[in-house]
Nucleic acid binder design. Sequence first.
DNA 1: CACAACTAAATTGTGTGCAATTGAAAAATG
DNA 2: CATTTTTCAATTGCACACAATTTAGTTGTG
Lengths: 148, 148
Amino acid sequence: MAKPANPLRLDSMLCFAVYAASHAFTRFYKPRLDALGLTYPQYLAFLVLWEQDGLTVKALGDKLFLDSGTITPLIKRLEARALVRRQRDVEDERLVRIFLTDEGRALREQALAIPLQVGEALGGDVEAGAVMRQGLKQLRERLDAALE
Amino acid sequence: MAKPANPLRLDSMLCFAVYAASHAFTRFYKPRLDALGLTYPQYLAFLVLWEQDGLTVKALGDKLFLDSGTITPLIKRLEARALVRRQRDVEDERLVRIFLTDEGRALREQALAIPLQVGEALGGDVEAGAVMRQGLKQLRERLDAALE
DNA sequence: CACAACTAAATTGTGTGCAATTGAAAAATG
DNA sequence: CATTTTTCAATTGCACACAATTTAGTTGTG
């Protein structure tokens, strides 16, 4: 009498809820980031670089969970627009360090408005957001730990 | 005396937690889906098609929150491998309907193992997963509602 | 019926993501 | 200290995502 309870139902999948929410964030950010001339991954890179200048490609990738195949071309596009500068480390010539230019640093002022708009869109429940963020972090850690 | 409390700190961002968790899911699924010869977005498409055959490109896109620019080439790759069949609707020739082939339908058996592995990796707390899924759905709806 | 407005799918162009490989440089090893 | 191993950044190839446009077909309007 009970219904078959499809174990492959899209709407029951946590993975899809995460996937769809991630795209929704990208869509939400799009018009805001267009004003800064940045894509969402580029914005993430700036979040890191505004906190700490002179990181290597590797270090930036570790923070964003991206590899050099993604970081290198992304940073090169920012360099072409003079928002960052790339420089080989003289101590260890394998390393390329990424520095903000004055223009890149100046972008931060305009970016400050964005988190406020996110908070507004989400109804301003900071506590619920923090709980969800923590849950997602644990989720990520468990998935990465189970990669064999 | 209090520290400045950077409002642009990466680790405080809900958007990044979602973004990173989404990629972690893709990484987790990769070896499992390689066994079926599917990418993660292709797997999502099959989740929908296994539930309901003969959907249009538009209807599939609505369920996955993707547009024809993503769906069309994805489905064409599946068609090239004879996992699905595309067919113009005779009533309305603007529509292209997507049907599973026997091979495409047969893939479902192998896919059944995957949700079990996810459950295992996440410690089997089904209740917590459902709560997070619901929270992410609400998050997505609020972000989409705030797109102006 | 004519014609404007709309809708669906496909196409084009740009920017990720990531696996796999390459080449250079540094570290580890015997 | 010479050779192997490891590490880092870059490159290549493939598959998304999505904005913007195009083409074709349908609907709405006078």
